[in-house]
Simulated assay, not measured.
Amino acid sequence: MRALFLALWILLFWTLPSKSEELFVSSAMGTKELVTAIGKDFEKEKGHLVIFNFASSGKLAGQIERGADVDVYISASRFWANYLKEKGLLESVSPFAKTELVVVTYRSSKITSLQEAERIALGDRLAPVGKYAIQALQKLGLYDKLRDRLVYAPNVRQITIWVTTKNADAGIIYYSDYLKFKDRLKLLEVLPETSHDPIRFYVGIVSSSKKKEVAGEFKEFLLSAPSSTYKSFGFSKCGERN
């Protein structure tokens, strides 16, 4: 009987779930709904707690450079992912999602084009959405004409807020962000993909992470999430059509 009890105890011990971890993920603001949804599924399936910090890619990169406790970094820009990688602060970097750049105005607005807007919201120099927007305006020959009407926001979410609250007449944001607020925004135009660098989102493991095994599990979970999940938030998986 004692031997049977011991055998059962050993079996129970080995089948108990492994110790749960707290995983710290710094993620570009534009991915908030997508990665939060995938993070919840990861928590349910793997038993680990995912704690997100959302801001512009550049701001998050600066935090990591200054030694912030982060396990996974998600960037809306290859530049910031490469910046950290070249400094030895990021590893195992992979593109995972893509979206489009769009011009929006508030729902009741009467304007029909960006040129009619008096106040146009863009991302600032740390926000990839701003870099893409400036590239597009320059490529389309509009930047010099509109320069005096531009106002700059720290991230794509702030642009959206300014437009929905009528503090800006128009804004240039990701299609995925338009989709979140389509009941309060009007889509004026999808900017040509040829007018700016490809919009790709990247995920990498922070080199100083003490939870690299769990960080790797999260990264693979993100990469293997269903295409339908991505599409429901206005994204496509890299390698697939929009």
Rank of each mutant, 00 (worst) to 15 (best):
K212D: 08
L191G: 06
F201V: 00
T229S: 12
P17D: 01
A133H: 03
E91M: 12
A168D: 07
E217S: 12
V129I: 15
Q135I: 09
A170W: 06
K85H: 12
T15G: 03
G171N: 10
S108N: 14
F79W: 14
P198E: 05
E240D: 14
T229G: 01
I159G: 06
L89Y: 07
I64Q: 10
V103P: 05
Y178I: 00
E213C: 00
T31H: 00
T112N: 14
S109D: 10
K166H: 13
A3I: 15
A136Y: 03
L6G: 00
V102S: 04
R119S: 13
I111G: 07
K231L: 11
L90H: 09
A37V: 05
Q115Y: 05
A76S: 15
I51D: 12
F79N: 03
M29F: 04
K210H: 11
R184D: 12
S56V: 04
S56N: 06
L187F: 10
D169K: 06
A37K: 12
S75I: 08
E118Q: 14
Q63H: 12
E189V: 02
K180V: 13
K110C: 03
D69Q: 13
K40T: 03
L114K: 07
I172N: 02
F233M: 04
Y175S: 08
T15Y: 11
F5R: 11
N53I: 02
